[in-house]
Design a protein around this nucleic acid. Structure first.
Lengths: 149, 149
DNA sequence: ATGACTGCAAAGCCTTTGCACGCAA
DNA sequence: TTGCGTGCAAAGGCTTTGCAGTCAT
């Protein structure tokens, strides 16, 4: 399972899609896309806010939420409901490759995993429901090794 | 797939577990358990609140949240993060039988489904992660038939 | 009688919205 | 120049907490 420090390809793709949708290349949106491109796994809006503030990007919290919403709507970002009352976001890579998450119910740590068999099972089920399935998410919950002891 | 109007067995089990954990048989908790036992699928705290208010149960919103938290902790209730910023709760039946959800991203309608193959795939994956998996959830998102047209 | 349980109201937290200014096109 | 984009502050919505009265044991 490869992982890149910064997914420049995704960032460029995202900016292109934004532009194609008629959005202008504002500083805030670009900063949000760039911040997201540095994360392989789920990040929350507040984490991005912290990050951008540390980099003194001068991006308002509202702009972060607005950008995330647009990116999600355009299908380049996936919104996840994983932690208690807080959404997380994750890049959607063009290759179609993606992972799911095991979450420690004690410390909240996220462990990503991927499994072709699981994906096949989901694809089969998706064909049987009346919803036209566009995406899915699987979450495993329990205690991580550290919290078990 | 059978479905009962009111899962009295679950309700009694839940009350018993509560009692066993040292909780007293207060009116609010009993009302919440009874309300939950009438739902086969995910309900939000606010929906339960509406329901109980209509029945003039005189149960405060805070008590509903407190009861839900206790029931979840005792393992008789499952908390789901399905809709935007709002949690839902679902009974955990002793038979181990359970379903997952397909959600319309437009109208929010939930369609439950179950699939043994999917469960097997999840069981396999659960053995490979470092988290000691106690439960899991699968969510399919897309547009329902009504919202597609 | 004692301490858990509860309702009410207030506070918290994440997220969204309103608004005036600034900037991309 | 036009009106989209943005930051700030205020408002929203769900959830949690504080507190004093009530009730189970």
């Amino acid at each position: 399972m490869m992982s890149v420090a910064t997914d420049r390809a995704w960032a460029e793709h995202a900016l292109e899609v934004l532009h194609g949708a008629g959005y202008r290349r504002g500083g805030a949106r670009t900063a949000v896309v760039e911040a997201l491109s540095r994360h392989d796994c789920a990040v929350s809006a507040l984490e991005l806010d912290d990050e951008l503030r540390q980099r003194k990007a001068g991006v308002g919290r509202a702009s972060i939420y607005r950008s995330l919403e647009q990116l999600e709507e355009l299908g380049v970002l996936k919104r996840l409901e994983v932690s208690r009352g807080m959404a997380s976001y994750e890049r959607i890579v063009q290759s179609g490759h993606h992972h799911h998450h095991a979450i420690c119910r004690s410390c909240g740590r996220l462990e990503p995993f991927e499994d072709p068999g699981l994906e096949r099972a989901i694809a089969r089920v998706a064909g049987r429901v009346s919803v036209d399935v566009a995406e899915h998410e699987v979450v495993l919950r329990g205690l991580c090794e550290r919290c078990t002891r």
